[in-house]
Nucleic acid binder design. Sequence first.
DNA 1: CAAACTGAAACCAATATGATTACAGATAAG
DNA 2: CTTATCTGTAATCATATTGGTTTCAGTTTG
Lengths: 149, 149
Amino acid sequence: MTSEFAVAVHSVVYLNQRQITTSSEELATNVCTNPARIRKVMSKLKKAGIIETKEGLEGGYHLIQEPSSINLKQICDALEVSFVSSSWKSGDENLPCMVASGMSAVMDEVYGELNELCRNKMEQITIKDVQGKLISNRLNLETMAGDDK
Amino acid sequence: MTSEFAVAVHSVVYLNQRQITTSSEELATNVCTNPARIRKVMSKLKKAGIIETKEGLEGGYHLIQEPSSINLKQICDALEVSFVSSSWKSGDENLPCMVASGMSAVMDEVYGELNELCRNKMEQITIKDVQGKLISNRLNLETMAGDDK
DNA sequence: CAAACTGAAACCAATATGATTACAGATAAG
DNA sequence: CTTATCTGTAATCATATTGGTTTCAGTTTG
């Protein structure tokens, strides 16, 4: 699976924390990738109405939705992410054997179902939830460190 | 995602249809891949107790479970398949920013949950079900062809 | 023991993924 | 109205992942 989804979620969380218009370069530094990739991903989020962009001097990206109303399904749909898929196909449509000619279609159906399942799960997680996970992970880490003393 | 899972499911369905000990070469021809890959996948299914192998002359693979009692979770567990995952990580653990340092762990958690979801779904589909899908797809195709006349 | 198979590893080729570079178009500051 | 700074987008390059090929030791049967 491509990691555009991670880039997008990370960027949105960062934008939510910054609260001000942020350039692709600053985002790239935080995400640890390059500005062009950030721009490619963010332009899709813009088309989906999740963020707004501003070109020119002092331009960049900013959120236009509340973190509690943005869910991860909106993001994966905006990017047309496929969580489960495979480009390699087993068998061959033209072989005179039901198994050889039909299995790849059946597997595609299976992958499609799994993908739907994932998308539905993503609908239940918001950016606010992700921020919550970040914070609780951070607290756990600090607690662990404390235990060492 | 790697396509070992497709190779395994395809092979098991074929074994179920053949009912006799089948060589890696015959399986490779049906799956459209090479015998070495078949052997690599099948040796894992053997360790999981799904198939039996026979070395030497007239050797090969055969099922040792009923198609209705083999589910796809058994197969993906045998292969240690990860349906949803990403090797690329956003951010960097060492950056002094909660988002940059913590997002990749959060995304890994998310991917892990999705993977569990997929594995649970796979538990509900048996090899017999897959064979059923194959047959119904085949029937649909024939019906479509009939409509054309 | 000879033939036909699996098991496993090393190596090669093709494909997919991310990085880099470049440039046109937009916008704000002066 | 010109310049600097930003996005949007595409082309190209580098690297990583994935699947294919080859090889050989070990097993089993005739």
